[in-house]
Computed example of a mutant assay.
Amino acid sequence: MPNTTFTSPLVRWLSAIESSRYFQITVITIIIISALTIGAKTYAIPPFMEQAVTVLDWAITMFFLIEILLRLAVHPDKKRFFRDPWNLFDTVIVVGSLIPLEQAGSVLIGRLLRVFRVLRLISVVPELRFLIEALLKAIPRMGYIALLMFIIFYIYGAVGSLLFEKINPELWGDVSISMLTLFRIATFEDWTDVMYETMALHPLSWIYYLTFIFLTAFIFLNMMVGAILEVMTAETNKQALGEAKEERDNMALQLAQIQAQLTELQRSLNGVGKAERSQSND
């Protein structure tokens, strides 16, 4: 029992620190500094600067480790802490950053995990986390659109290989190469040069290119954007409904408390009235 009374105020104090706005701003600032240190290591800097960056990198890693331990300490259910994908992601990144870079076999892994520390901005900033969650929920719908795009790419790639293989085997030698060429056309990377080359032998080949660009760059791209926007709109409405429900629950609780206070006040007034009437009768 004494142990509980000692721990409870400490947990509340740590929870207040972890949820404070200043602490969140500090975490975001440290993540940005971490990104800058990673970028500094890609340049040829003097040895003393390199040592300073290394010390700063380890200090940042220790800060992230303390921050993860703090979040774990204030979490109401320790067993469910790692069931949250964002908590698991942050923990893997932080623990992986503890890999010493002096070991030759783990240099690449350690550096990559340090680069991925920048992604912790997503888990810290709620708006970014909302965007990523919406994007992940839109992946199933986008998958069907991507499958349909692949079918169109395959059909046009096979047709292009049959028609234009003799003109330029490097671009239309087989279906796979043709699909790579079509991807280049879909991204508008010098696609007119490819079109004019085939038009020299097939004057009507412009129909092939324009129909493909119309399907991929306009229809399918807009379908992708529409799927993402639909999911984001649904998630925004769901979040707004949740906030409205929480606000209604808070208002109902406040009204219940006011009603209880009024009832108690009414009882007190009735008691005072009865006492006054009994005194007057006496």
Rank of each mutant, 00 (worst) to 15 (best):
N3P: 07
T5I: 10
F6H: 10
S8W: 00
P9Y: 10
R12H: 10
L14A: 15
L14Q: 06
I17K: 07
E18F: 11
S19Y: 10
S20G: 08
Q24F: 02
I25T: 09
I28L: 13
I28C: 03
I33L: 15
A35L: 06
L36P: 07
I38T: 09
G39K: 10
A40V: 10
K41D: 14
T42V: 09
I45A: 01
I45M: 08
I45H: 00
M49V: 11
E50V: 06
V53I: 15
T54I: 02
L56C: 09
D57E: 06
W58D: 11
T61A: 06
F63L: 03
F64G: 00
I66S: 11
I66L: 14
I68G: 01
L70D: 11
H75I: 04
H75T: 08
D77P: 00
K79Y: 07
R80A: 14
F81E: 02
F81S: 02
F82K: 02
P85K: 04
W86E: 09
N87E: 10
I93R: 02
Q103F: 15
L108V: 13
I109K: 04
G110V: 02
R111K: 11
V115P: 00
R117F: 04
R120E: 09
S123E: 05
S123I: 01
V124N: 11
V125T: 13
V125G: 06
R129P: 12
E133I: 13
I139T: 07
I139G: 00
I139K: 00
P140Q: 03
M142G: 03
Y144N: 06
Y144L: 10
A146I: 01
M149A: 15
I151T: 14
I151F: 08
F153H: 08
F153A: 00
G157F: 05
G157T: 08
A158T: 05
L163F: 08
L163K: 05
F164M: 10
K166H: 12
I167D: 13
W172H: 04
I177L: 12
M179E: 02
M179L: 06
M179S: 03
F183E: 08
D190Y: 09
W191I: 04
W191S: 14
T192V: 09
T192F: 09
D193F: 03
D193C: 03
V194A: 07
M195I: 05
L201V: 14
H202K: 06
P203K: 04
L204T: 06
L204Y: 04
W206V: 13
Y208F: 15
L210E: 04
T216V: 15
T216W: 05
I219L: 15
I219V: 15
F220Y: 14
F220H: 03
L221R: 14
N222D: 13
M224I: 12
V225E: 07
G226D: 09
I228P: 01
I228S: 03
E235K: 09
N237S: 11
K238D: 13
A240Y: 07
L241K: 14
E247C: 00
Q254C: 02
L255S: 11
L255Q: 12
G273H: 06
K274G: 07
A275K: 12
E276Y: 08
R277M: 10
S280W: 07
D282S: 04
